[in-house]
Amino acid sequence: MEIVVCIKQVPDTTEVKIDPVKNTLIRDGVPSIVNPFDEYAMEAAVRIKEQCGAKITVLTMGPPQAASALRKCLAMGADEAVLVSDRAVAGADTLATSFTLAKAIEKIGKPDIIFCGKMAIDGDTAQVGPGIAEHLGLPQTTYVQKIREVSPHRLIVERVSDSGHELVSIPLPCVVTVDKAIGEPRYPSVKGSINASRQEIITWTAADIEAPPDKTGLNGSCTQVMRIFTPQIQKHNEMLSAESDEALCDLLLAKLQEAKIV
């Protein structure tokens, strides 16, 4: 079985602080990490590899530094790593990114499963995974929480939706985006990390994957970021307390009525 896992290197947003004066994100010195949801995608792929054998190729698009994110995935159990790095693909939105990744996947071969995290923590769009599926014309299932069954031509997965849980049977090849419930990503073994640090990262340019300039990078993007800012969050919290639960309910009701909510 051939699996491609698409990942993204993101700034560790838990460490990103807001400049109180300029109201912008301070990215200075913030370490880059593998997008946490993509680690879950890696974990899903590695579990299938352990269960029924598979070759895992981990794929990302980004600057040369993104190689370190790929190495972490190699340490977790990926067999090969591909980095699409080219000025021509820089500044891409989700449309251009998913197009570029789709072209890279075509060059990799004909994978049976393409795993993505459900979204990246820096953009929160959750569009790249589905975009890849559309560009490749493959079926997709998103927000997957459990892989129940893997057979040569079909996956049976559980996914979560607004209306509840769904059991989905999807033919291969397909695109799957995963949620955290899929299983805690493993901590790579030291040996795995050392081997990964020695392994070669395959690097492709836009030309290598035959991606036309008008469909990649800024040129291929149909959306553009005009400004990044931190919204003012105004919270008014009030803790209510009363002697009994009934009294507390009455107090809460009075407050809600006062605020004209009920």
């Binding site: 901590y187 030291v190 040996k191």
Partner: peptide, 17 residues
């Protein structure tokens, strides 16, 4: 044990992480 066998206490792994 740590580097070759990946066989060590979970709590130590947490500290490494």
């Amino acid at each position: 044990e740590v580097m070759n066998e990946n066989n060590y206490a979970h709590e130590l792994q947490l500290a490494f992480r």
